[in-house]
Simulated assay, not measured.
Amino acid sequence: MDLNLVRVFVAVAETRSLTAAAARLYVTQPAVSQALAKLRRDLDDPLFQRSGREMVPTPLALSVYPGFRDAIAGIDRTVDAVHRFDPASSQRLFRIALSELGEIGWIPAIHRAVAERAPGMRLEVVPMDVAELPEWLGRGSVDLAVTPAPVPGEFAQTVLKSQAYGVAVSQRHPLARGEVGLADYLAAEHVRVASDSGAANVDAALRRVAAPPPPRVSINHFAALPPLLAGRSGLVATVPDTIAAGWAESWRLVVRPLPFEMAPVDVRLYRRSTTQHAAALDWLFATVAGAIRGSSGQFGVIHGDAVAAG
């Protein structure tokens, strides 16, 4: 079988688009269509059927895709080993999906690590959407993703950190003194951050003993959380405890243990399953993992002063 036909098949399977596949392969869309027509004859199957703007794979296409993908990836890695990927000369753009906290805490370390060895490589941070991650990683819309949320699918991954959660409150709040009981926790007025990709883990742990209380206030950004808690709002928040402890150094906050059992959450780095630029992605995956593991995070940049914290 013509290897170029296999490349076309893999590109269409991953992008679900003839136009996007052509752009990835640096060929015209008619060339992709012609290659796909030949492959359909060779395999005696339509392989893809148009549904709206998407090329939906047939059962046969789904069954042969993993083998074709792995074959292309193996060939590309072999060729890359001969030519040796050189990060110093790379001009590639890579996209990393990060939550707001991930962007605040780790993008400085990631940028430093990449810029030291690959000064021409470009990075783009994509706002985290946990529900879309399987699609993004499966099609290659993003190259890497960092999240504590489990991502369904067969994606290469590695654990970066284990993160516990705690209850953050103002120093003036009644829950700031003594042990936080479950009844008091459930009765408190909670604030929830929409961009917290670990919130589902908290809810799952809490559901083992009680129904999660509805939030009194919902906000979009973690940056708004410390001043909201430190003021006279009477709100509480369930957040990563080490991050909240950092905020407590400059905001009038305290962090208390959760009143229910919750195992630390593993923060994982995921990589896309698509085949393009395998050697460069191998390098970036290892570099980002090392940068985050070696960083304590820059979460303290959300800090207060004597006026704002009061």
Rank of each mutant, 00 (worst) to 15 (best):
V142G: 01
P87H: 05
D266S: 14
A183N: 05
S197Q: 10
R24C: 03
V236G: 00
R92I: 12
R92N: 12
L36K: 00
F68A: 15
S90N: 10
P227E: 10
W283V: 04
A156H: 12
D86S: 08
P66C: 07
G178V: 13
T287K: 13
S250H: 13
A309Q: 12
S218D: 10
V191Q: 02
T275F: 03
P59W: 10
A35F: 00
P59F: 11
P127Y: 10
V126E: 10
G234I: 03
E54D: 12
L18F: 13
E54P: 00
A263M: 11
I110E: 02
T19M: 08
D203P: 02
V180G: 01
A71N: 00
P87A: 03
E249K: 14
V126W: 05
L284A: 05
P257W: 09
V265M: 07
R139P: 02
L39V: 11
V114F: 04
T274F: 12
R50K: 15
D76W: 06
A35D: 08
E261P: 00
P264F: 13
L25E: 11
W251C: 05
L5R: 05
V8F: 11
R41Y: 07
P226I: 12
D2F: 06
A31V: 15
A81P: 00
I219A: 06
P226R: 00
R53Y: 08
A308N: 07
D44H: 05
R232T: 13
E124W: 06
A245S: 03
A113D: 07
L123E: 02
L43M: 12
E116I: 14
L123N: 03
W283T: 03
A22C: 04
L43T: 08
P108H: 14
R7N: 02
R40E: 06
L3C: 01
P150L: 03
L5E: 05
T15S: 14
A194I: 04
